[in-house]
């Protein structure tokens, strides 16, 4: 694996001293299965700072969730394996930490919000118990003290009548309220970084907006870093500062959020943007990227997107494009922009 394909564009916001809040550096994750080795993440690098929101965008199977789970340290190993790469939290490599040290980071410093709150909450424990557990385990608080903090948390994520509802079970809440409880749990110990893995996918559209707003508000209030994993371009536009688009376990494009929407520099991103239904195209056929996402057991040679790419040339089938710096018309690099396409210039101007 050459390192040229993971040049440091993803770490554009790294401070000179090199201590971003979180840095993922050339991460590889693979799963051993009966059919062979599934290469889910193939050299991903990104970074997040305090108060910053990074959106990781991609289809299912693009490696976006696996990367997050690796950061969180909740991959089942085996079958998962991390053959190379580093995940640094405030400069410390999480992957070489002791299990006990890693456990103390989880939940307290880096917290995670999952997609399906109903299955992610323990069905037989009250939400109050599950919230107060954070304080009891990490802060050594008494049952009573922790319960009071749980009620505070529920108030904070705007759950009505928190005091009465603290002893209810997850199934007694609506979908939106359950996701608020997940958010409350993640916020409990005021972590530096929250990873939200498709936090609104399982919710009604009206509730999605409320939950996203809440998350964005709380992030501002606590000045946390946020990694938002999603396949929903609509969600991203409002809250993200920068975007990393993933395909077949690699980052194919990185950009500040508005640049990406305005002017994508990778044919895959372009396809994604075109496939958003728009009111002014009523009556026209909806655009879809042709073909299927690649089989991770057998990722196409060269650029993984080449079999589906309308711009593919001979070089795309043989040569893996590195993450090129994207420059403006006068040749100056645009901060934070990168594209893993041989023809990024043509894409940008085409």
């Amino acid at each position: 694996m050459s390192t040229t394909d993971t040049t440091a564009v993803g770490q554009g916001n790294t401070t000179p001293s090199g201590t971003s809040l979180l840095e993922v550096d050339d991460l590889h994750v693979e799963f051993k299965t009966r059919d062979g080795i599934v290469r889910a993440v193939n050299g991903v690098s990104y970074s997040v700072d305090s108060g910053e929101t990074l959106a990781v965008l991609g289809e299912s199977g693009s490696g976006k969730s696996v990367t997050a789970q690796a950061v969180m340290g909740i991959l089942d190993m085996p079958p998962a394996r991390i053959p190379s790469g580093e995940i640094r939290y405030r400069g410390q490599n999480l992957l070489t930490m002791s299990n006990e040290a890693r456990r103390k980071v989880r939940g307290a410093k880096i917290a995670m919000i999952f997609q399906d709150a109903l299955s992610s909450l323990n069905p037989v424990l009250t939400v109050g118990y599950q919230l107060s557990e954070m304080f009891r385990v990490h802060r050594g608080m008494s049952r009573k003290e922790a319960k009071a903090r749980a009620v505070d948390l529920m108030d904070r994520v705007r759950i009505p009548a928190a005091k009465e509802r603290v002893n209810d079970y997850p199934h007694q809440f609506s979908g939106g309220m359950r996701q608020r409880i997940m958010i409350a749990m993640a916020l409990a110990l005021e972590p530096d970084l929250i990873i939200a893995d498709e936090p609104t996918t399982a919710l009604d559209v009206t509730v999605q907006a409320q939950v996203m707003d809440l998350l964005a508000d709380l992030q501002k209030e606590f000045h946390m870093g946020l990694i938002l994993i999603t396949h929903d371009l609509g969600v991203v536009a409002d809250v993200a500062d920068k975007i990393a688009v993933m395909y077949a376990g690699r980052i194919v494009e990185t950009a500040p959020v508005h640049e990406l929407y305005k002017n994508p520099a990778h044919p895959y991103t372009k396809g994604l943007l075109q496939s958003i239904p728009r009111l002014d195209q009523k009556g026209q056929e909806l655009y879809a990227i042709k073909g299927l996402p690649p089989n991770l057991l057998n990722i196409p040679e060269g650029c993984a997107f080449n079999p589906r790419c309308p711009m593919a040339q001979e070089v795309c089938r043989h040569e893996l494009p590195p993450l090129h710096e994207v420059t403006d018309d006068s040749g100056r690099p645009i901060a934070g922009r990168g594209s893993a396409c041989h023809f990024w210039k043509e894409t940008l101007h085409g």
């Binding site: 969180m72 340290g73 909740i74 456990r103 103390k104 980071v105 989880r106 939940g107 307290a108 917290a111 995670m112 999952f114 399906d116 299955s119 992610s120 909450l121 323990n122 069905p123 424990l125 557990e133 954070m134 385990v137 990490h138 749990m185």
Partner: peptide, 21 residues
């Protein structure tokens, strides 16, 4: 189950994850 993954993500010690959750 998903809630077991959550319990790990909460940074709970293993004996608590198994013994309680």
């Amino acid at each position: 189950a998903d809630y077991m993954r959550t319990a790990v993500a909460k940074g709970l010690p293993r004996r608590r994850i198994v013994g309680v959750h």
